[in-house]
Amino acid sequence: MIQIHDLNFRVKDRFLLKTIDIEIKKGELIAIVGPNGAGKSTFLSCLGSEIPYQAKQFSFKNKDIKSYKKDEIPLHRAKFSQHQSAEINLKNDEIVLMGRYPYFKNDADISDKEIVQNWMQKTETQHLIDREYEQLSGGEKQRLHLARVFTQLENTIENKLLLLDEPLNNLDVAHQFKTLHLIKEFTNKNNTALVVLHDLNIASQFADRLILLNKGTIELFDEPQKVLTQERISRVYQYPCILHQHPVTNQPIILFG
């Protein structure tokens, strides 16, 4: 679904991403992990065409990603950003409705509004509808924008791409898991999601494969069991850790310290 060959991104003389080669399949849920400053968000921004990277090849669904039109790509790809606007003077359902902006000209259809309702239900934000956006907590705002991003990709196109930059920030444990289940539900329909995560255990539990980034390069891109070894993780994070097994799923569990 995505083929990237020799992608670089640098600011002045410093490479933030260096010779990235990667191939991502459809239907995969991929977690991007790594220490601070490893280039996780930068990589996601490249995938979202937000910054001017250099790449020998970057194809999305067998087409050069730059050949997609500006108003066409929102139907295929959506991004959830790490920092959400603190001040939006709109009703909360109007904010979620923005996800449908690529679909209607002036007035939203009933179907658009139904999709908004549906996703507000799924993200458990429906009860916030009459509250002011600025009064919402960080986690509530976060879920509202998640709903918006999901409504944007609600269409009949196959193999869509969802990019999420730390979607679990500010969320309580229950909502962290509920959110991951929503993402999993999305990738089960043959769509792909790349998620920047900080919690390695959550990553290993949900992701099909992990991208471990370190200093702007891919340390390893493989299944969680192969990526999460004691030696590698303590070397990359420069902090001691031990490895356990999840009692139910048998996935590796990392304990730091």
Binding site: G48, E50, K70, D71, E72, I73, P74, R77, A78, K79, S81, H83, Q84, S85, E87, I88, N89, L90, E94, I95, M98, G99, Y101, P102, N106, Q152
Partner: peptide, 21 residues
Amino acid sequence: KGKTLNALMLGEKEAAHLGFD
């Protein structure tokens, strides 16, 4: 420009992800 100006409240990058130039 109504939709674009609304989307701009999300931030410029977010608005671009919704297809606005």
